[in-house]
Design a protein around this nucleic acid. Structure first.
Lengths: 71, 71
DNA sequence: TTGTGACTTTTAGTCCGTC
DNA sequence: AGACGGACTAAAAGTCACA
């Protein structure tokens, strides 16, 4: 499984776990709403800068967004 | 500390620990020689695709390249 | 609320060097 | 062996309208 796919899944999972819409997350992270959508759809492979900013919004370590689910 | 700085430090540390030159690492990861140098100097923030490929060369989890030193 | 196509701007990443 | 730069190309970052 590609790392960008892991990111996409974790991104969606963290976002929904915190009850945020794509739009709310985008606003708080200072990025575009459609870009969040693109990341969750694996349209792009994100840069580490974007990963870092999103992790800040979630209040987690950036590493957590790239960690494969144990299952 | 910025995530791209963490990557830069870990990249250099892993590379030297395995006794690889920048050029050898670049060749094995299928990226450019000067780009490895650039990453270690924080000239760029890498994409997750590049991080993944470099981690494969080192034989480690991509997450390990982004983990801050415990010290 | 989210997905998508078309688009422009910025940056990643390459290739050529010199020091 | 590696730092560093200029110039270039591919891809990401970011915006918008519309379904």
């Amino acid at each position: 499984m590609k790392l960008r796919e892991v990111l996409a899944q974790n991104l969606k999972a963290f976002r929904q776990a915190q009850g945020l819409s794509q739009e709310e997350l985008a606003h708080r992270a200072g990025i575009d709403r459609t870009y969040v959508s693109s990341l969750e759809r694996c349209r792009y492979g994100a840069s580490i800068d974007v990963i870092e900013r999103i992790a800040e919004v979630f209040g987690v370590d950036p590493v957590d967004l790239l960690q494969k689910p144990l299952a």
